[in-house]
């Protein structure tokens, strides 16, 4: 088995006096889909945001694809191209078309010419089945389509790992399926993924491993069947019971 593509050790994060991450270790293997669940405020977003240094961890180490992310000499903008991120609120650039959104970093970060960048952007949009929406502005797209454009924007840079922070929680229920389908296709193409989400059905079907976080720590982790079917920790049991009641 190859070594982990993403390796975070002893991550701590303080916001002032608030201790949000209290020593998190996370190893993700190539092609693995890791699912992260946990109550609100448990530090899931903070963990993801540390993994591409949108937040500066207070302590710990992070290695992605062999690059020490917290080393001062690391060119963080270069490193971030290997780590795609998808946000709950899509965060598409409203003044650019779908194509423009996807092509921007291809041009400005990777330095590709307009024609090549747009060809690659179209390919990426095609992978999320939105090739026919390339000329639309975000305001002219549904939430689900916007999120798929956001996925295309990330995968166009050919990242080694993709981070998803509640990618479907801002969507109307009927639009969730399209985004989950795009994520599943991405997974089938061999993408390594870390997903924070409450979509338990997706986790059961697609995740290799489920991590339950609470109070800034990883409480329990294992295959989806084990975590959902026979959680060992009381807190995990309570949380999963609550989620299942909410979705019943």
């Amino acid at each position: 088995m190859p070594g982990p593509i993403l390796e975070a050790r002893g991550l701590h994060k303080h916001f002032g006096h608030l201790h949000v991450l209290k020593g998190v270790d996370l190893l993700v293997q190539e092609r693995e889909l890791v699912f992260v669940i946990g109550p609100s405020g448990s530090g899931k977003s903070t963990l993801l945001r540390c993994l591409n240094r949108l937040e500066e961890p207070s302590a710990g180490s992070i290695t992605v694809d062999g690059i020490d992310l917290l080393d001062r000499r690391t060119d963080i903008n270069k490193a971030r191209q290997r780590i795609g991120m998808v946000f709950q609120s899509f965060n598409l650039y409203p003044h650019m078309t779908a194509l423009g959104n996807v092509a921007l970093a291809l041009r400005k970060v990777q330095g590709r010419g307009r024609a090549e960048a747009e060809a690659r952007a179209r390919e990426a949009l095609d992978r999320v089945h939105l090739a026919d929406r390339a000329g639309h502005y975000p305001g002219q797209l549904s939430g689900g389509q916007q999120q798929r454009v956001a996925i295309a924007r990330a995968i166009a840079l050919e990242p080694r790992v993709m981070l998803f922070d509640e990618p479907t929680s801002a969507l109307d229920p009927e639009l969730v399926g399209g985004v989950l389908a795009a994520m599943r296709e991405l997974r089938e193409s061999g993408m390594t993924m870390v997903v924070v989400s409450h979509e338990m059905g997706f986790a059961r079907a697609a995740a290799d491993r489920v991590i339950f976080m609470d109070g800034g720590r990883i409480v329990e982790q294992g295959p989806p069947a084990a975590i959902f079917g026979a959680p060992q920790e009381e807190r995990t049991r309570a949380f999963i019971g609550q989620i299942e009641r909410n979705h019943a």
Binding site: N52, L54, N77, K78, A79, R80, Q81, I83, G84, M85, F87, S89, N91, L92, Y93, P94, H95, L104, A105, K108, V109, A150, R153, A154, L157
Partner: peptide, 26 residues
């Protein structure tokens, strides 16, 4: 919105690039 900065930075755009291509136009 802060999310615009974060999305741009997460794709590897630098501070000045994010300001110039994403934030200032809006």
């Amino acid at each position: 919105p802060r999310g615009q900065w974060e999305a741009a930075r997460s794709t590897g755009l630098g501070f000045a690039q994010t300001l110039g291509w994403v934030v200032l136009p809006q």
